[in-house]
């Protein structure tokens, strides 16, 4: 077997598919981020008895586009004492995991870029780069608030990755595969959210923490660290961080949908409806995103040590216990 065949085995026979897919994902990410920003502002506003963006376009739908164009037109400031190369690199690097992760997510039965047999692993392997970008950005800014934010981000992400992976592991054990499509297929009878609710809860909590959303948003806690790791970023670079945050929300929700909520499958009792899988997939994904937004605008923020204690004292033991118990159950069932 020649080396190029190995690569082809990994990436799939159709290279064009990947190229088209990545372009498509880029477009999806942009549109999604614009839509999510608008959605978040609207939902937040209505929770708070306000209207939210309204005057710019019908229902304010153009608001995020206008914001985006404005940010492109802003001056890019690099602070004098910042590390210029890394400062510029960080907002770009934050996008790498976004692009890679979408490669393996099955949007519907047919619409997926590449169904790798190590799909789940790919997503979590590349999610690290996100943290890395945050860290580099926070460090390169040469600002104490940024640095504190970056350190917090790293500690938080490293800690919460453990229960996250443990929660995913029980799904992998159940469906006997690391392949996304197999995992979806294993949920044809019962979604994992019903068969392992605890793992779902752990996954969702840890995923919220991984994406630095409230109440786990301490790396960018406004009232403590001004704007956290992106305090010094302006204009387009800030927009990239912003975009990445919302893209990460999409990824996390999409992965949760795939792993726990039956992916593109219709809900069991609604199977008769002639709705394509893609619609179901996005409906579930956006429902999860809505919950994240809802949570964000409800709760205060945790303190840093409480956050870590919560992870080490509750989440990790719970995840470990869950894994052991489920291993036993699977052994009995099979």
């Amino acid at each position: 077997m020649a080396a190029w065949q190995n690569l082809v085995n990994f990436l799939g026979p159709d290279l064009a598919r990947i190229v088209v897919g990545v372009v498509g994902v880029l477009a999806l990410v942009q549109v999604n981020a614009l839509f999510l920003v608008w959605l978040e502002r609207k939902v937040a506003a209505h929770i708070q008895l306000r209207i939210g963006p309204k005057e710019v376009g019908p229902f304010g739908i153009l608001q995020s586009i206008v914001d985006g164009i404005k940010l492109v037109g802003k001056e890019l400031i690099t602070p004098r004492h910042a590390d210029r190369k890394l400062f510029m690199l960080a907002p770009i690097a934050v996008f790498l995991p976004v692009l890679v992760s979408f490669v393996v997510i099955p949007f519907s039965e047919r619409l997926l870029i590449r169904d790798m047999n190590v799909g789940v692993l790919l997503i979590f392997a590349f999610s690290t780069f996100n943290v890395l970008a945050v860290l580099v950005g926070g460090w390169a800014s040469n600002n104490k608030y940024s640095l504190l934010g970056a350190v917090r981000a790293v500690a938080q992400n490293v800690a919460y990755e453990i229960p996250l992976l443990l929660a995913v592991l029980s799904v992998v054990m159940w469906s006997n595969s690391l392949q996304m499509s197999e995992i979806v297929a294993s949920q044809s009878k019962v979604w994992h959210v019903f068969s392992m609710p605890v793992a779902t809860l752990i996954f969702l909590i840890c995923a919220t923490a991984e994406t630095n959303r409230a109440p786990f948003d301490i790396p960018e806690a406004e009232s403590e660290l001004v704007a956290g790791f992106h305090t010094e970023y302006s204009g387009m670079r800030f927009a990239l961080f912003f975009l990445a945050e919302y893209s990460n929300m999409l990824i996390v929700s999409a992965v949760a949908t795939t792993l726990f909520f039956g992916g593109w499958k219709s809900p069991p009792f609604l199977g008769f409806l002639p709705v394509p899988g893609l619609i179901w997939f996005f409906a579930k994904t956006y429902a999860l995103i809505f919950v994240t937004i809802w949570v964000r605008w409800t709760f205060p923020r945790l303190r840093f040590d409480q956050l870590m204690n919560f992870c080490w004292k509750i989440m990790i033991p719970a995840a470990l216990l869950h894994l052991v118990v489920y291993a036993g159950i699977i052994k009995i069932v099979r």
Binding site: A45, G52, P53, E55, V66, D67, E222, V226, A227, Y233
Partner: peptide, 23 residues
Amino acid sequence: GASRFDLDRFGAGVFRPSPRQSD
């Protein structure tokens, strides 16, 4: 910026704490 008057209607409700990101 609060509910009664809601600057966010004009897209001006995003109060940024960092000067780098404000207009």
